[in-house]
Design a protein around this nucleic acid. Sequence first.
DNA 1: GTCTATATGTTGATAGAC
DNA 2: GTCTATCAACATATAGAC
Lengths: 200, 200
Amino acid sequence: MSVPGATRIAYTPERLLAVAVEVFNLRGYDGTSMEDLARATGITKSSIYHHVRSKEELLRLAVSRALDRIFAVLDQPAARTGRAIDRLEHVVRASARVLVDELPYVTLLLRVRGNTATEQWALERRREFDRVVATLVARAVADGDLDDTVEPRLATRLLFGMLNSAVEWYEPARADATADLGAAVWRLASAGLRRRPAGS
Amino acid sequence: MSVPGATRIAYTPERLLAVAVEVFNLRGYDGTSMEDLARATGITKSSIYHHVRSKEELLRLAVSRALDRIFAVLDQPAARTGRAIDRLEHVVRASARVLVDELPYVTLLLRVRGNTATEQWALERRREFDRVVATLVARAVADGDLDDTVEPRLATRLLFGMLNSAVEWYEPARADATADLGAAVWRLASAGLRRRPAGS
DNA sequence: GTCTATATGTTGATAGAC
DNA sequence: GTCTATCAACATATAGAC
């Protein structure tokens, strides 16, 4: 049923992945059937299997892309040198950029439950990331730059819980106050919301 | 295959629900089959259908329980009278208590995607809750008690994103620093993590 | 690279005996 | 209240023509 004059989309694994991830995020990975993907792409189930081995491969491609981008943050110079508090700020802001730039992929990653081998691997890598950040928070506390009344591990989880929650509500279309997500998160996490009478 | 001497668990809808919610949270609602529930309960699929009409009914029972507890927070006197900032603090702390006390049910509620009519109803009620809280935040800003540099709606989302993230990591077994989740969340959200040289 | 047709297992749910 | 047996629909995935 090709339309004359309208060029048929040539599916690459990359483009197929983009469509699949959208549907996964809408319906959930388990709630999405290959038939759903067929409808969304405009080709049949069989044609999809020409590009990928399995439904799980699509998941693996998606979460590994998200993980690559997120771990790249930890390799940036600003995350590896300087005062712990400044490195932490950089990790938060750069992670926020990754979240926004790769929103569908990061969203899928953050919703992984652990049903398949792929999902368990993704969960393990996420824990690895959390451990690195928790170490950074602990160091900032030791440096006297962060309050020591909130336990480092708890602080880390609240900090990234706040940031990661953005996958549930961030709308890239709107160029509103949420434009710089990282700035907002860092401001709230470091200074808090409460207005102070005088001084900073 | 009943064991003599070991009293067979008498299943009530309530007890069945508790088991089902555990499995739903482990595998995801869509990733859980009635056969999975049969294994977890120790009775057959057919027996489960003696207690509930459908798999979706289990979901509905679970999320409505969570929603009831959460909306009850807004009806408490401390959430309805006094300064907006104090009402907000109470809503955060009371919501944290609900999250902890009803952890499996709240967890399931927060993971709903919208595939079924039940799920869409749950999402709509969650948005309703968010709107009430956002109004409270806006009022606290107007009162001059909250900083006006972070937009109220964004602040609300970050605040509850932080709190709700607890369903991903909170462990009731451990009576550690996370014992009072609400206190930790409120402290971080209001005062921030950064250590200040002098004064409060 | 896409299609039709199909294999093979699993799904949510029901019928009816005990 | 639980069971065995079964259903129709749908799942992932494959075979092979064009």
